[in-house]
Amino acid sequence: MEKTTRLFVSCEEAKYICDKNQYGEATFIELIKLNIRLMYCKMTRAYSKRNGKLTKAMDKSNIQSIPSTDKEVMKQKLQEQLTK
C-alpha cells in the first residue's frame, strides 16, 4: 500500500483509509485526506457508501464466532473420536 504525505491521496489509498475507518483505526490526518477525496471522487464515494453498508450489516446481524481456543478443543475431541 503506497503512502503519501500529501493531502490529496489516490483513490486506492482513500479506499484503504475508508477500510481502516470501519474499524476506528484511521488517524485524524487520514480522515482529513479521505474527506478531501470524498468531495471530488465519485468512485471513493461509492466505495465508502458500500463499505458503510457492509459494516452496518455486520453489526446488525449479531454474527458470532467460536473462539479459536474452543475450536482447537473441538478439533482435538473430533480427532480422538476419529482415531477410536
Binding site: 450489516a57 446488525k60 446481524s61 449479531n62 454474527i63
Partner: peptide, 8 residues
C-alpha cells in the same frame, strides 16, 4: 437479522 447472519 438472523437470516442476514447466515447470508454473511
Amino acid at each position: 437479522n438472523d437470516e442476514l447472519g447466515l447470508a454473511i
